[in-house]
Amino acid sequence: MLKYFAKRILWMIPIVICVALLIFSLMRLIPGDPARMLVSRDATEEEYLNKRVELGLDEPFLTQLGKFLTDTFLHFDFGKSYMTKTSISRDIGPRMVRTMELGLLAAAFAMITGILLGITAATHVKKWQDSLCMIIALVGISMPAFWAALLLIMLFSVKLQLLPPSGIGGIQYYILPAISVGLYGTATFARQIRSSMLDVIGSDYVTTARSKGLTEREVIYKHALPNALIPTITIIGGFLGQMFGGSIVIETIFSIPGMGLYLITGINNRDYPVVQTCVILLSIIFCIAMLLVDLAYAMVDPRIKARYASSKVKRNK
């Protein structure tokens, strides 16, 4: 198992370097010039060209690429934002924390509500509870996040004055954004769990469990649900990866300075170092998230754990 883990980590290195190369080249290929964004509208041609030199954009592509790769991967120096001239590694820290907090909260909300809905639907299949849960899931998938956000704000901030409408601070600032983002996840999980559970509830081992005289609750939560959750792990992984990219719309609506907003502002301003750093960090986070998902699989399902261990054995032979 440890070898498998180590191999996956080693694979991350060439992947991240490829991502870095790609984003570096792409940014410089698309139209739009950071120097133009930094000088005023009425600047002279000289001022503009001086700015290009100042940013190092007049040097040949390969020189810039070389400098970028050595700075990033050898010195771990992500440079300074063109726009604000502040250190990116310092700016990105709190932003990433906020986005991850939001992402984890949204994922927790989505998972708890999704699992409850899914189980209710599966254990009362074809009855009114099933239809109700599936309608809620349909609404969750179809409703755009920003619309949900605005409705929640209208209800909880304006009418009931319970939660703040925007900004950051304590956990109360993250509740509405987490729900807005998580709704889509709730729907996805509910549908997935329902179908997994229906699959699993018909399994022989569930009948075995019942025939042992276990309570229905034990049968569902101890035997059926853990098996039903296995395919959901993939979805959770994908969901978390999406979350960490930051939901730009939600961050804008709630004025949460997170990764999403940072990245999109960087893209709009063609702030190369910011975009590069964000994309590289996101790719690392995503790789780790996928690795954790695969490890979770192994932890939950001993058959997969055996497969990981045996695949290494095969290679050794």
Partner: peptide, 18 residues
């Protein structure tokens, strides 16, 4: 000074006293 990025949120912030 508080940063509010979205137009309708500015209105809400003012109305709710934020």
């Amino acid at each position: 000074f508080i940063s509010i990025l979205e137009a309708s949120q500015m209105k809400i912030a003012l109305e709710t006293g934020v």
